[in-house]
Every structure is written in C-alpha cells, then in structure tokens.
Nucleic acid binder design. Structure first.
Lengths: 231, 231
DNA sequence: ATAATACACGAACATACGTTCGATGTCAAG
DNA sequence: CTTGACATCGAACGTATGTTCGTGTATTAT
C-alpha cells in the first residue's frame, strides 16, 4: 500500500481552510460545498467533498452528514484550536467611553446611553468574567497618566467597569473624592461609618475618609487589561 | 389601523432567539427553519419565517435570502451586540501552563509542547493583540505572590507570554536572575554591554546588571489580565 | 507490465431547505 | 356587526445543497 499524500496539508487543503475561516468570519455561517468550490477554483462538488473529508480526518473541521452548511471549524490554518462553538455567546464588545484620569470624575454612561452605536469597543471573552456577571452595562475606560499606580493600574491600561448603586466591602471601585478633586481606584470598605480606601499595592497605606459624603462611588472595576507595548 | 404587537419581543421571539444562540453555540452553524420550528413548538415553516422576518426588522438577526441556514445573529437576547462575524478568527485560547513565582524560573513550554491537549486555557479576543502578533506559541501563567508589584502585576493576575530567542530593547520580559535566584518582570534594555531592567512602576528604580550572563530572558509579556475579585 | 492509490472531474440524484399562498382564528376599534 | 391587523397553520413549490457514481490520469511499488 502506498500513501503518497503528504503528511499534512496540500495547497488545496490550505485554500479551503482559509476560505472557510474567511467566509464564516464575514458571514456568521459556513459556506456551502458549491461556494467553497467557486472560491477555490474547484469545479466539482465531489472534489470539494473529497478534500473536506480529509480535513475532517485531520481534525481541522467537523461535518454533519446531509446537513446544509454542516461544517464546523475546529482548527484554523494557523493551528489555533478555535472554539467555534463558544464564540457566539462567549465574546462580546464593551464600549470604550473615555479615559480615566486623576483630576476628573469617571465618565459613567448615563442610563440612556446607546451601547450599540459606539464606534470603539474592546472585545472580551465572556469566560474572563464570572458566569453570573451581567455584561450589558459594562463600559471601558482607558487609563491616562501614572496616578493609578497604587491600584496597580498603568497608563494605557483598559479598565472594564460597571455602574453600581450599592457598593459592597472589598469591591474594587472608582471613587471621586470631592475634597481632593480626584478620582482613584481602590478597594472599598465601610467601617463604622468611615470609609477605608485600600490600594491594590499591598505596600501602600489606605486612605481613611471620616466623612463618607465626600466619597462618590462611580463604578466597580471588574477587569483590567494591559496590552504590552514597547517603551 | 391598530398595532397590537408589543414594542419589543413576544414569547415566541424570545424562544427563537434563545434557540438560535444555543444552536449556533453548540454546532458552529445556524439552525434551519425546520430545526427552529421543531425546537420552539412551531409546527409551520411559514410561522418561523414570519417571526424571523420580525427579528430581522428589530435588528436581532440578519438574513440572506434563499440561502440555507442564512441567519446571522447580530444581537443576543441579553442585548449584547454580538460580533458573530468576528468570532471565528478573533477569539482563541491560550493554555495556562503554570504559575509565575519569584523564586522559580518561568515554566516555558518546550518546543514539543502540545498546545491542543491543555485542559485549562484562557480565552482571548484576537483584537487585544497587534495584528502581526502570532498567536500559536502563546502561553499563560498565573501570578502567585506579591513579588511582581514593581511590574504593576498583582497576585492572581494572568500574564500572557511568548517564548523569544532575541529580546529587543523596551520589551517587557520575564527574566531569571541566576545570582538572585529570582524571576522578575521588567522592561529590558541592553546598554553598552550592561543590562538595565526597568520596573513598570515609574516610581521605582531599575536594576543594573553588569554581567548579562546572569540574566536569562525566558519570555516576552504581551498581555496582562486582572480579573477583579473581592478581597 | 500490473496493481494500488491519490487526485481530479462531470453528471445525476435525492433530500434539505426557504419562500409563497391561501385559509382560519382572535382581538380591538369604529 | 364590520373591518383591519396580527397571529397561526398546512401545503405546495422551486431551489439550494450534499452525496454518490463512473471515469480518467499520474505516480509508485511490486
């Protein structure tokens, strides 16, 4: 018995895989056999079928028999193990509504804020948040300046927040301190009528506020993302 | 003329949307009209068609005419603006290969490491990385302890890294300092034969290493993710 | 020379599938 | 009571779609 097929992908395999990724990305559903053929210069549906069967054997795709567009991408050409099945409900976009700087209050979106019309957003995998966390009111802010370093948050970091009406002890919140004209990110504790704002950096001391009225909690931090760029 | 339909979704709309999300999530492709009917107790394909047309008018889905399974989810029942079209190529999983602690070298995966067999991974939106960044060699580590605070990285943070063979000035890297038996995360600079390791925290001083042989660069940091949990 | 396998293809076929049509029922307003 | 809008449904139809079959060529091992 003579196996002449290369261990691995031929040119047509690669072309088909690339097209599958592109089509699904652009359309939200897989292509048909005929659409694959039309876009990979394969004139016969049986040849496309032949290659799809091989891609299935090599665990790049899964197929459902006798189902139109019944192709599920399992692995991309780059080799990434794609969780196609997870994608639809497990990634979402959080609108970036502005910047967080020390000298201004956090720009919390108002209740009539239209999340759908935002031009910039940051994509987040759902699994980064607890399952019970609602995702629809989240907003993102980009940190500007070094004023948040006691929160272990750097210039340029993305902070994902949610508006809250009631803060619980131990939550990481953005607070506006009216007596200092300052926004800060701290762990919040209400202790015997006083507010303790605890930095994330364990080597730093907390702020004690005797008059809780001076503390305006503007939102809770649920995620911080730092994209590394060279300095 | 009398409009009796509620502004918004009826019970059948909601059932259909939920099923669309679930089916696509589990199968990687949308259901057919008949499959929707079978799973929402609607016995007629024309009724399903009737409701799908309304969901399209309300911008929950987009449809392709005369295309089997030509349904694209645009918005979920929760209201999230889902980028169905982006999902297939724009989210991937990075395996979590261990922990990064100060007193041990970084557990960099070996070159025969099987990324596909990892049981735990962290899901990342592709758009969080630069377009040219390759994604297949990335690995994730969970930070253990307070030793990375000068890198603005907290206990419990997830650090996404890649192996590198050659470090460029200004890159954030994990280095093992053999004379100190310590791993640290720093911006790397090679200056006149000496290595300067610059903390991310701008208030802290760099480490100057006269003998570069003592510095083992173990990987480059490309992303840091901090999931907020209460303290 | 022969056999086996891979690769390529067109054609035919049956089923999957979406759309359309006509009919019926309910409800609220006039 | 009538009318119009909305909801519901079965049936029919035509097209979209995947699978199968038979054929041909090229290559390699026996």
């Amino acid at each position: 018995m003579m196996a002449r097929r290369k261990a691995g992908l031929g040119e047509r395999h690669k072309k088909i895989l690339k097209f599958l990724e592109k089509f699904q990305s652009e359309n939200g559903f897989p292509p048909s056999i005929r659409e694959i053929g039309e876009n990979t210069k394969i004139s016969s549906t049986s040849v496309v079928n032949y290659y799809l069967n091989q891609l299935e054997e090599m665990n790049f795709i899964e197929r459902e028999s006798n189902v139109s567009r019944g192709i599920r991408l399992v692995r991309t050409l780059e080799g990434n193990l794609m969780q196609t099945a997870k994608a639809i409900t497990d990634m979402f976009t959080v609108p970036v509504v502005g910047r967080i700087v020390a000298g201004e209050p956090v720009p919390v979106p108002s209740s009539d804020f239209n999340y759908y019309d935002q031009e910039t957003g940051i994509d987040i995998a759902r699994s980064l948040l607890p399952p019970r966390e609602k995702t629809e009111d989240l907003f993102a802010l980009e940190v500007q300046g070094d004023s948040m370093i006691d929160a272990m948050v750097n210039d340029g970091d993305i902070v994902i927040m949610r508006p809250i009406t009631q803060v619980e002890n131990g939550e990481m919140v953005a607070v506006w301190l009216s007596d200092r004209d300052e926004t800060t990110l701290k762990y919040f504790f209400n202790e015997n009528g006083k507010v303790r704002l605890q930095p994330a950096n364990p080597t730093m001391k907390p702020i004690i506020i005797d008059n809780p009225a001076q503390v305006k909690v503007q939102g809770k931090v649920v995620l911080v993302i730092r994209r590394m760029e060279n300095v």
